[in-house]
Design a protein around this nucleic acid. Structure first.
Lengths: 120, 120
DNA sequence: CAAAACAATAGACCATGGTCCATGGTTTTA
DNA sequence: TAAAACCATGGACCATGGTCTATTGTTTTG
């Protein structure tokens, strides 16, 4: 499919898709036609973009995603890929913990605010 | 305390502290001396900075933190403060879920990579 | 066929979150 | 007291992650 359709179906702007491609998160091939230089995107790319998109929303950087996507699809050394993925999972679990700490803090703050409210 | 000590004890650079102050995350008072215009930071600010710091690491934006800090300390309307905090907690829980989804995806990918490994 | 819609490319532009530097003034300390 | 260390201010600079615009060329469609 062409970038317009991919944009439509992925919910990402053309610009963003091109940015991701430039950064090695996805790849495309030249279109069949020899009169244009349009790019052709496979259905797989759509799936990849869905993952990338949710990962970006979860706060994973483009640089990190490049590593991951490379591990998924380009890795000549699967055990190397395994390591990249394991490391990333570890990182994300740490991040979850951090956020949970902040939530705990906010929960405590909430209790205090409510005490203040009932005092008043 | 002066900014140097605060920097030391909070682990944040002077520049970062000044940035946070400019953005309303913390506040300070003028020093006692009348010959200088140094700022004076209370011990409370140190605690606030520790929270800010961990929240920043968890990916919470400065703008969001400003809202939160304001709710904690400046709110004339406690029930408004409560709402801000509740909203933020909700947001963070959603974020955790998003990250957990990515982790699940990566776990699945890991399984596939390992299948590939055992096939080889 | 002509206009509208689409595509590629490059570069400008923007916000966010910091860091770094220069300047000039104030304390500390040796 | 003089040098070293500290402070405030402002502006430059940087990376990240996008968006927007202009230009030029290609398809689609009425």
């Amino acid at each position: 499919m062409k970038i317009g359709e991919l944009s439509e179906r992925s919910g990402l702007s053309r610009d963003t898709i091109r940015l991701y491609e430039k950064n090695g998160l996805i790849s495309s091939s030249a279109s069949q036609s020899e009169t244009n230089n349009y790019r052709d995107y496979s259905d797989d790319v759509l799936l990849q973009l869905r993952f990338v998109s949710s990962a970006r929303e979860a706060g994973i950087s483009i640089a990190d995603l490049r590593e991951l996507m490379k591990a998924f699809f380009d890795s000549c050394d699967p055990s190397q890929a395994e390591n990249v993925i394991i490391a990333k999972i570890e990182e994300l679990k740490n991040r979850i913990e951090q956020i949970e700490n902040v939530v705990s803090f906010l929960d405590a703050a909430l209790v205090k605010v409510r005490e203040g409210l009932s005092d008043a």
